[in-house]
Amino acid sequence: MTYHFETQCIHGDRTKEQAHPYGAVAVPIYQTATFSHPGIGHSTGYDYTRESNPTRTELEKMMSGLEQAEDTVACTTGMAAISLLMELFSSGDHWVCSEDLYGGSVRIFDSMGKKRGLEFSYVNTADLAATEAAIQENTKVLYIETPSNPTMQITDLRAVRKLADKYGLLVAVDNTFLSPYFQKPLTLGADFVVHSGTKFLGGHNDTLAGFLCTGNKDYVEKIRYIYKTCGSCLSPFDSFLLIRGLKTLAVRMEQQQKNAKKIAEWLRTQPKIKSVYYVGLPDHPGYEVNANQTSGAGSMISFQVDSEETARTLLEKVQLITYAESLGGVESLVTYPMLQTHGDVPKDVRERLGITEDFLRLSVGIEHVEDLIADLEQALA
């Protein structure tokens, strides 16, 4: 039987937790490094936690169900998941990437990736012609963020899949901003999906995690082999925290999106706000494409204020909203991308993308929206 998304978040693919010892309703934490063998040549199915662990397996199965993946591996961080993805490729392979990309992704590509002999080009993947023009003879993968971080560019994933088929390429999508609740890239043609599970999936700003999901059967065994070899596996306790976070994913995403829309509309009325970047606003350039490939706009807002002084004053004066890196938790966070998430991106690239001294990013939480607006109002005064 196939269950609705909200039910899968809580129960996975079953309605009763009959498989758990002693009838435990919550998933037990198997805090063990190793497992005993029933006999020589026999196994319970679990041998060593670096390879597999029952708590983590439960989480991975849940994520595979939510993303409609063939398989999922849970990693220590989102960066570990991206590093694992890179291991699938060889020296000389070329990637075409969204130019407005999380700064940590750019850092790992331009340092570790290039050290391994991989090559990277960055283009506006919302522009299909520019994306096609960047493809080379040695291109192997199109790496997409949509919405992008932090300027919220939208890439048409169905069009990207057609382009990939034309040149025999793979497609990887960072789905951190929308989560599988609002967007399922594998159903739109992606071969791989990566997540920073630290963000919306965990949802409480209390643990680090990452996921690599694949819809391509040819890569399941390869990923599992590299995964156990590199040892980037999520711990049993952190797996438990992610399972607990997933249970409320749907209700959190709905409330966060509801709050974000009201805040985005309010920001547009403020004299010190020059521009608002929110995919849920009908005049956003990617609004129609996003609406056609997702079921929501999420709760990430970026905005440009009238000066660097206003930006810094807001960061110093917010009281309820926290000035901090990260996103996707129940608490609202405001970030200064120029100094924080995109500090490693070259200045000329940042400024061309609009990530300047007057640019801020807001991750909207589940607090009462009137309290959040009041906090922004006093910080902008």
Rank of each mutant, 00 (worst) to 15 (best):
R350Q: 13
G245W: 05
A159M: 07
H4M: 10
M79E: 13
R268I: 01
Y277E: 10
A379K: 01
K184R: 15
E67F: 15
L353F: 06
L242R: 02
M338G: 00
N124G: 04
R14G: 04
V334Y: 02
L128G: 01
A190G: 04
G231F: 11
Q255Y: 01
Y46N: 04
V364S: 04
T187Y: 00
R14T: 15
V171F: 04
N53M: 06
D13C: 09
F5C: 09
T207Y: 13
T207I: 09
V123L: 03
R14H: 14
Q304M: 14
K16A: 14
L84P: 01
Y225K: 14
F35E: 11
I29A: 11
L281F: 11
G203Y: 11
G65Y: 06
T131E: 03
E377G: 02
E60S: 06
Q270W: 08
M1Q: 05
H11L: 12
V173D: 01
L157N: 03
S90V: 03
F177G: 00
Q18M: 08
V345L: 14
T335V: 13
D375N: 08
I373R: 01
G203I: 07
K162T: 13
V334Q: 01
T44F: 12
L212W: 11
F200Y: 14
E99R: 12
E367L: 06
D283C: 08
Q255G: 01
V194R: 04
L85Q: 03
Q136C: 07
T44S: 15
H4T: 11
F182M: 10
Y48T: 11
R352K: 14
G23D: 05
R252Y: 11
G189S: 07
P38S: 08
P21M: 04
Q18H: 08
L66C: 08
